[in-house]
Amino acid sequence: MFKQWEAAPAGTELSLTEVLDQIQFNEAGLVPAIAQQHDSGEVLMLAWMNRDSIIETLQTGQVCYWSRSRQTYWRKGESSGHRQRLCEMRLDCDGDAVLLLVDQQGPACHTDRRDCFYVSLSANGARILTDPASGR
Rank of each mutant, 00 (worst) to 15 (best):
C64N: 12
C64R: 14
C64L: 12
C64D: 08
C64E: 11
Y65W: 07
Y65K: 01
Y65R: 00
W66Q: 06
W66T: 06
W66M: 07
S67V: 03
R68A: 12
S69K: 09
R70G: 06
R70Q: 11
Q71T: 06
Q71W: 03
Q71Y: 04
T72Q: 11
Y73I: 01
Y73F: 01
W74I: 01
W74Y: 00
R75D: 04
R75T: 10
K76Q: 03
G77A: 02
G77F: 00
G77I: 07
G77D: 06
G77M: 04
E78G: 06
E78Q: 15
S79R: 01
S79T: 10
S80P: 01
S80V: 00
G81M: 04
G81H: 13
H82T: 03
H82F: 09
H82V: 03
H82K: 07
H82Y: 07
R83W: 08
Q84N: 03
Q84K: 08
Q84Y: 10
Q84T: 08
Q84F: 04
Q84E: 11
R85D: 15
R85L: 12
R85F: 12
L86N: 11
C87W: 06
C87P: 05
C87K: 14
C87H: 12
E88K: 15
E88I: 05
E88G: 14
E88P: 10
E88F: 11
E88D: 15
M89A: 15
M89W: 08
M89Q: 12
M89H: 13
R90G: 10
R90F: 10
L91E: 10
L91N: 14
L91F: 09
L91W: 10
L91Y: 14
L91S: 13
D92E: 14
D92A: 12
D92I: 09
C93H: 05
C93W: 13
D94W: 09
D94I: 05
D94P: 06
D94Y: 07
D94E: 15
D94K: 12
G95A: 14
G95T: 14
G95N: 12
G95I: 11
G95W: 08
G95L: 15
D96Y: 15
D96A: 14
D96N: 15
A97R: 11
A97Y: 02
A97Q: 15
V98G: 03
L99N: 10
L99Q: 13
L99P: 10
L100H: 06
L100M: 05
L100W: 04
L101E: 15
L101F: 11
L101R: 14
V102W: 04
V102P: 05
V102C: 07
V102T: 06
D103F: 09
Q104H: 04
Q104R: 08
Q104S: 01
Q105Y: 03
Q105W: 05
Q105N: 07
G106T: 00
G106S: 02
G106I: 00
P107A: 10
P107Q: 01
P107S: 07
P107T: 05
P107D: 11
P107F: 05
A108Q: 04
A108H: 02
C109Y: 00
C109S: 02
C109N: 00
H110M: 04
H110T: 07
H110C: 05
H110S: 09
T111A: 07
